[in-house]
Design a protein around this nucleic acid. Sequence first.
DNA 1: GACGAATTGGACAAGCCTGTCTAAATTTGT
DNA 2: ACAAATTTAGACAGGCTTGTCCAATTCGTC
Lengths: 208, 208
Amino acid sequence: MSVVDAAASVFCREGYAGANIDLIAAEAGVSRQTVYNHHGDKENLFVAVVRDLTERCNAGIFATIASFPDQPTDLEADLIAFAVRMNRNCICNRDGRFLRKLIQAEGERYPELFAEWREQGPGRTWSALAARFARLAFAGHLSIGDPDVAARQFLALVNAELQITFMLGGMPTEEEVLCSATNGVRTFLSAFARKKSPAGKQAALAHA
Amino acid sequence: MSVVDAAASVFCREGYAGANIDLIAAEAGVSRQTVYNHHGDKENLFVAVVRDLTERCNAGIFATIASFPDQPTDLEADLIAFAVRMNRNCICNRDGRFLRKLIQAEGERYPELFAEWREQGPGRTWSALAARFARLAFAGHLSIGDPDVAARQFLALVNAELQITFMLGGMPTEEEVLCSATNGVRTFLSAFARKKSPAGKQAALAHA
DNA sequence: GACGAATTGGACAAGCCTGTCTAAATTTGT
DNA sequence: ACAAATTTAGACAGGCTTGTCCAATTCGTC
């Protein structure tokens, strides 16, 4: 295991203040001196960890969004499969859980570091996802007022049943992921399936 | 400010390991010795903080659930108002944000302490809310498959737009709360408004 | 005003952690 | 095989924190 990977694990488990360089070195299988040679000091190492996690998470998210079902054959099944991929490969995996925890725990202490993440991560993710939903709506598969709102609500719905597990840092089972995705997508489609009623009713409030 | 309140603030800001008893004492306006006289040691103080937050949060949540619109006059407006109360008084307020952060940061280190919270907090909250939705469905206002799923999805939807703010420990504005609640309730009602189609389509997967 | 209880400030030991230094050992490139 | 670069183990100083002790002071109550 690389030094940065070990550091990510220890920072997440113990928090920044509680993380011990000796422990990181031991977990990485190197001497403490090597950690200092490579990364200078603790804060530097922490920044390297966050950058590494951010980069890998963003890559995973965009790879997954690329698999969005633009020409669905079975809309419900395709969206469920997409939601499961999203959860499995981006939200529930090691990098996703670690990054979330670091942001929650230390976000206020490093505003500029996480502002970067915020713009390139969720901001771009939601835009990209919203664009896909807009395309589905344009093709007549959905009836959507505001694609940005729909994208956020899609993610909220397919994760609705996993919140508690995430809160305690746990890893949901494959079955829980499937269950949450299925229930979420069904509700999403109940709300946004193509209707003949005017789209005005679904108009959303502008987002600040 | 009481010692426990000051400790909650410092534990949340700095994490358990980074929290400094001197700082807690200063923020509470007492001497360090008084902190030790009252609470013994750091871990004891931490447990007292979590118990205090858990208790107050649960009280707030149940008080708010008691205001659920059982006989709505305008279902959408009443649910939006309820969602805003829920967010304002339980999720976004000081206690709610602090407790969430402590659970996320230290939940794994104190499994039994937070298991208690888990059973009495979210577990009972969701049951109580699910019962209210079931009553609305029984009275013909909604068409719901599984009330537990609906309750979780309701909460997920009305918070969908606030996730990022929560992640970074921020406090959403009144306008953001209203916006998220409005968009969430509208989508919720689009999905669960009374329909004439058979309820079977909304049947949800069993929850593990 | 007087007495008991609580609070205060400060000193203090013990432990832990960071970050540096050094000399020896090991790996790497040629 | 040799030389350069890297890694290692350990010692070490400096700083910070926890938790205790104690004498002086303040507070609440009668």
